[in-house]
Design a protein around this nucleic acid. Structure first.
Length: 273
DNA sequence: CCGTTCCTGGAT
DNA sequence: ATCCAGGAACGG
């Protein structure tokens, strides 16, 4: 489940490989594109990749000719670069072939991932991308940016709040649990009960943990790999996620798992109030 | 604002 | 054979 650190790691691994690369051919095996395959391929052929950016969990490929390719990997999506032509796997949905013979494969077992080809304008015309909240690892991200939103969602559980991409961009289930543990906040606390001090701690934990996870090249729990198919290391540093019944690394009491908003939520009942 | 849906592979 | 994993869109 690529979240901000994983998507950023993919961006960093891919950009040096495809910057300046010219697309000579696109193969679409599954309808995961917008517009549909024929138009998608037609518009993308002969375009050059100028740079790759990221917003939240979205990858944004800037192309010449004022076109933008946006990719969301959702749960199991992968974007892998092959220096030479490579055989597609069972779940390879889109292949970009470059002038130098290299290929970029989009594979996604669960087919939740999506690609959009849009003109370069101020907004992308992609609802989830246009409404994204602030980047938690940007300079100047702090509690002032989200304090008003916290006040406007009094009854919302704090975990649901930080998972909401319109409030903060990039957190998913793994990092939401890790961030709440680091700030000593129970995932079911209501926004109205979060103090200013706790909000500051939460923002601080977000920046620290997401940056640390990027340093570790992301969390490879099952499917995630970067643009070179390399796994990350951050799974070795997780303190609560997937650690049900294991001792809390702070107090030694067993980690609990409950459902919050239908999502499994790991936390320490002693350290998180 | 909550629950359901999409989708497949792995666990039970 | 059935359940579960979860990001985001959608319906009530």
């Amino acid at each position: 489940m690529p979240e901000l650190p994983e998507v950023e790691t993919i961006r960093r691994s891919l950009e040096p490989l495809v910057k300046g690369a010219k697309i000579t051919e696109i193969k679409v095996n599954t309808p995961v594109t917008q517009p549909q395959a024929t138009l998608f391929c037609e518009q993308l052929t002969k375009k050059e990749i100028l740079q790759i950016a990221r917003r939240g969990k979205y990858l944004i490929f800037y192309l010449d000719d004022a076109l933008v390719l946006v990719v969301h990997l959702r749960m199991t999506g992968q974007l892998v670069y092959y220096p030479k032509t490579a055989p597609p796997s069972k779940h390879t949905h889109v292949i970009f072939v470059f002038e130098n013979g290299a290929e970029l494969h989009f594979t996604d077992t669960r087919r939740f991932g999506r690609m959009w080809l849009v003109p370069k304008t101020e907004t992308f015309g992609i609802p989830g991308l246009d409404t994204l909240g602030p980047e938690p690892i940007d300079e100047g991200f702090d509690k002032k940016i989200i304090a008003d939103k916290l006040a406007r969602h009094k009854k919302m559980k704090i975990k649901i709040f930080i998972l909401d991409q319109t409030i903060i961009a990039g957190l998913g289930n793994i990092y939401a649990d890790e961030v709440l543990f680091a700030s000593g906040i129970h995932p079911e606390r209501r926004c109205e009960d979060i103090s200013q001090k706790e909000l500051a701690a939460l923002c601080c934990a977000m920046q620290n943990i997401l940056k640390e996870a990027i340093t570790h090249r992301g969390t490879s729990f099952r499917d995630y790999v970067d643009g070179n198919r390399a796994k990350g290391e951050h799974q070795d540093f997780l303190k609560v996620y997937q650690r049900r019944d294991q001792p809390c690394l702070t107090c030694g009491k067993p980690i609990k798992c409950i459902k919050v908003g239908g999502r499994s939520s790991f936390y320490c009942p002693h350290c998180q109030k």
